[in-house]
Simulated scan of single mutants.
Amino acid sequence: MPSLTDLSTIRALCAKYDFALSKGFGQNFIINPGVCPRIAEASGIGPGWGVLEIGPGIGVLTEQLCRRADKVVSVEVDKRLPPLLAETMAGFDNFKLVLQDVLKVDLRALLAEEFGDRPVAVCANLPYYITSPILMRLLEEKLPIRNITVMVQKEAAQRLCAAPGTREAGAISYAVAYYSTPKLLFTVQPGSFYPAPKVTSAVIRLDVHDTPPVTPPDGDEAGLFCLIRAAFSQRRKTAANAVSNGLSLPKAQVLQAMETAGLDVRLRPEQLTLEDYCTLQTALRRPVGNN
């Protein structure tokens, strides 16, 4: 099989299977031959590992994963791709295609059935328009996944990997940091794709925590992230004002809670750490006037 990063090969395959790239599915095929081996290596997989891939496309990254791992299961929503992948992945008996929407399939059951006790990594070139929903589902469901290595839009990568308490952080930065240790690995230029997107991409790796770095009061993770989202819903305001508006709480109650938590009431949302938000969450649960 000729190289799947060769543009003439891609065009021939698309013509053979009457396949046209779909903007709706965010399809951009990788044509830089150095990118996919680098992504696969960065994921840390090897013999004994299972890999869940999301959106295999024509199999450019998939074949690199299959060369390294025991088994690769690729979840694909585009019903036009199976015949094409049957040809490009014919040389790998450790590859399986699951024709499903990754946001709807029972991932826990899928991982148990396909990988058993193997350590599992997620690896993907994610469609930009659903990057956050996919990553949050993988993290929030606390699936048996060791790490997640994905290529996303550069701006999204920077936000996902921003440390809580820094200017670049957003609400999703706190969620990512709660569930994992993120690292921005390298950038990928538009010319590495066909068709070339208008933005630069970046590869990130999230090493999933066995235990989160902070503990919300009573283990109320949903409450913690509701508080953080409220704070960032108006990030130009102080955290106190944004939380008051976002959660429909009296401002006096929020100010008292911040003082109880030992936090400066002038702080903006991105200036608080994960631990600060947990402390504030605890203080907000106390009756007003009870210090």
Rank of each mutant, 00 (worst) to 15 (best):
D218K: 14
L267G: 08
E259D: 12
K154R: 14
K23P: 04
A240Q: 06
R146N: 13
G91K: 11
Q27I: 01
A231P: 03
D101M: 07
R285S: 14
E141K: 04
M89W: 02
S173N: 05
I134W: 10
T282G: 11
N28Q: 04
E275K: 11
V152N: 08
C14I: 01
R268L: 00
L61Y: 09
G55Y: 13
I31E: 05
L274V: 11
V73M: 02
P212R: 03
V51C: 07
E113S: 15
L7Q: 07
S132E: 03
R159L: 02
P83W: 12
V214N: 12
P33F: 09
F95N: 01
R68S: 00
V188Q: 05
G24Y: 09
V73Q: 02
I145K: 14
F29S: 04
S244M: 05
D93H: 03
F25A: 11
I130G: 02
E87I: 03
E259V: 10
V98Q: 10
A156C: 10
R68W: 03
R235H: 05
N125I: 11
V98M: 07
R268M: 05
G91W: 03
Y277M: 00
L84G: 09
Q256W: 15
T273E: 06
P2H: 04
G55M: 13
D207E: 15
A283F: 04
G262R: 08
A40E: 10
A156K: 00
A283H: 04
L267W: 02
R286E: 15
S3A: 14
M258G: 05
R236E: 01
R159S: 08
G59C: 02
L185W: 03
G24C: 07
L284H: 02
M151E: 14
A230W: 05
T211R: 07
P190W: 06
L274W: 12
V102C: 12
P2G: 04
